[in-house]
């Protein structure tokens, strides 16, 4: 039986039996390598879980070695639908001295799809831009 709860679209309505579930992060955790070896964007993403929290380490494609962006905690973890316990997406933010990058990633058919929204604040004349890349899980 469904209960009355606030919503802004039909899909926000759920059956009470599936409420208060915790997310399973296992599908996301691991090392994800860009499917494009020649990427000029993100080379690798490492996802780890600690106490139910998801942490992200990004390595950008740089020469001669990848640029380590550091480790940040996911802003929010998302399931693949309102009835699911499987964590399948996250958002995270990186702040640099020259700008910022918002990451939105989702798991899809064994791939991690990462969208990057890069914004520049250094007056360099670079356009803010969006890119989308695909990653396979290393060792699987």
């Amino acid at each position: 039986m469904s209960q009355y709860i606030k919503k802004v679209k039909a899909e926000d309505r759920v059956e009470s039996s599936i409420l208060n579930r915790t997310s399973d992060l296992s599908r996301l955790v691991g090392t994800w390598v860009n499917t494009n070896h020649a990427t000029r964007g993100i080379a690798r993403v490492v996802l780890t879980a600690t106490n139910g929290k998801l942490f992200i380490s990004v390595f950008g494609a740089c020469d001669p070695a990848p640029c380590d962006w550091g480790k940040v905690e996911a802003d929010t973890i998302y399931s693949d639908n309102i009835s699911s316990q499987n964590a399948s997406a996250f958002t995270a933010r990186y702040q640099f001295d020259f700008g910022k990058t918002q990451l939105q990633a989702n798991w899809n058919q064994g791939l991690l799809v990462v969208g990057s929204f890069s914004t520049y604040t250094d007056g360099s004349g670079r356009s803010n831009y969006f890119s989308r890349e695909f990653f396979r899980q290393q060792g699987k």
Partner: peptide, 19 residues
């Protein structure tokens, strides 16, 4: 459009992603 829904009302609904 990728949509990231986050619930803050303690309704017990899970945050979820859709496209």
């Amino acid at each position: 459009i990728a949509k990231f829904d986050r619930f803050k009302d303690e309704s017990g609904r899970v945050n979820y992603f859709s496209k």
